[in-house]
Write a protein that binds this DNA or RNA. Structure first.
Length: 419
DNA sequence: TCTGGGGTCCTATGCCTT
DNA sequence: TCTGAAGGCATAGGACCC
């Protein structure tokens, strides 16, 4: 059996742990750059604030109903997450950390356990030790555990936050209840397509022909169907496979049309990727650079483009990666466009200790020592103390984070003060 | 004025090699 | 030496997740 643990309104719950005044009040946490609502308390949901609501459009509602608004504080959420996960791992050896607020547990050899009450005690322990409320869905497959979790969350009084699907009868009942667009793995596109042919629930979906699903939704869709039928095909992924790409992308505060200004951003994004590479002892051998205009301003000329730049050797040097990124930008930049967003993604990752050398062209060996020194100084003196000439030395821009809470558990000078 | 960021997997396509 | 089939690989795009 699988269990899916999901933290309720996770980011909001993290803020509430250290600020109990927020309990029973509408609270939202905004995305990076304070753009959209990405976590809402039940009270905020009741006010009709949808997931992804753009903050500027809902400002009036926020003021009118006294909604508490926060910038996202990923340092705090990440730390709270690892506390929750470490408690979960005490209850079974088989755990997959699926995201910052979700984990799958596998119960093998638990035949004599009453899983419902076992999971109740997990839930109580997590709340007692961290203050984070969670919901748990238990079922024979991962996709059904997702369904089960949804029921636990939707009917807290009836389920007390834990729900178990352990018979065909319960499975069918759940699938008839679950709307097709709410099925894990069915996104917006597939949901639209399916609803057009009168597939409105998860139960309608499993009644489709295997062949049709395979043809129209690839093996991914077919696997999902098997899972919902109760045949487990997705196993726990306990070992986190190494990353295949590292991205740094940002929307700008306004729009930018000047090449030099975008070049500076791209260079900084590339260096940020290089730093992330070094922090996990990796190299890359290619970098993807993209720019795009504002898709919401329909009356303006729309342009989006990206380019993959191959680096002839494997590297994590700020200088090299930034150079190729700027070269890529030169090739895709078009004059007269108001750019809104840009980014760099490094790919072809491998270990920096053990990488393939090129017969003809290799990195200047002195870069390695230079980067080591830069990292050392940044660590000691703070980030962005050292810059390449292609970066803006005055750094006029940074992410908008106007309503940031303290990092109560991870910065010593922001630790909570009890009087 | 103001609409996130960071990932994954699958498939189709075209080119190259065996 | 030529040819077609089949497989490997890179790339781009689509779809999904949190």
């Amino acid at each position: 059996m699988f269990a899916l643990i999901d933290c309720n309104n996770f980011y909001v719950s993290c803020e509430r742990v250290f600020n109990p005044k927020l309990n029973n009040r509408p609270v939202v946490v905004l995305s990076n750059n304070d753009g959209c609502a990405i976590s809402r308390s039940n009270e905020a949901k009741a006010l009709g604030i949808p997931m992804g609501a753009p903050a500027f459009k809902y400002e009036k509602i926020f003021t009118k109903h006294n909604v508490e608004v926060f910038s996202s504080n990923f340092t705090l959420y990440g730390d709270m997450s690892s506390r929750v996960m470490s408690i979960l791992s005490k209850y079974t050896p088989n755990i997959e950390i699926y995201s910052i607020d979700e984990a799958f547990l596998k119960f093998e050899g638990f035949e004599n356990y009453d899983l419902e009450s076992y999971c109740q005690s997990i839930k109580n322990m997590v709340f007692k030790w961290t203050g984070i409320p969670i919901s748990i869905g238990i079922a024979p497959t991962k996709a059904l555990a997702k369904v089960s979790n949804r029921i636990a969350k939707k009917f807290p009084e009836k389920t007390k936050g834990v729900y178990l699907i352990n018979s065909d009868e319960k499975r069918i009942k759940a699938l008839k209840w679950l709307k097709i667009e709410d099925v894990w793995g069915i996104g917006f596109r597939h949901a639209e397509r399916l609803k057009n042919i009168k597939i409105n629930t998860a139960h309608n979906f499993i009644n489709l022909e295997d062949n049709w699903v395979r043809r129209n939704m690839s093996v991914v869709g077919l696997r999902l169907k098997k899972e919902l039928e109760g045949k487990s095909v997705l196993d726990l992924e306990e070992i986190r496979s190494p990353k295949k790409a590292i991205a740094t992308t940002r929307s700008f505060e306004g729009t930018i049309n000047d090449f030099e200004e975008i070049k500076e951003r791209i260079s900084t994004f590339a260096i940020c990727c290089a730093e992330k590479l070094r922090s996990q002892n990796s190299n890359c051998n290619s970098i993807y650079v993209f720019v795009r205009s504002n898709k919401f301003q329909k009356n303006k000329i729309q342009y989006r483009n990206g380019i993959m730049m191959t680096i002839p050797f494997s590297t994590n040097s700020n200088i090299i990666i930034s150079k190729y990124a700027v070269e890529g930008l030169k090739r895709i930049f078009r004059k007269g466009i108001d750019y809104k967003k840009a980014g760099t993604i490094v790919m072809g990752l491998d270990s920096s200790e053990n990488h393939q050398l090129n017969l003809f062209e290799n990195e200047n060996p002195r870069h390695k020592y230079l980067m080591k020194t830069i990292d050392f100084i940044q660590k000691k003196e703070g980030q962005s103390k050292i810059k390449l000439a292609s970066q803006d030395l005055r750094k006029r821009w940074k992410m908008k984070q106007e309503k940031l809470s303290h990092s109560y558990t991870c910065k010593i000078n922001e630790i909570i003060n009890v009087k």
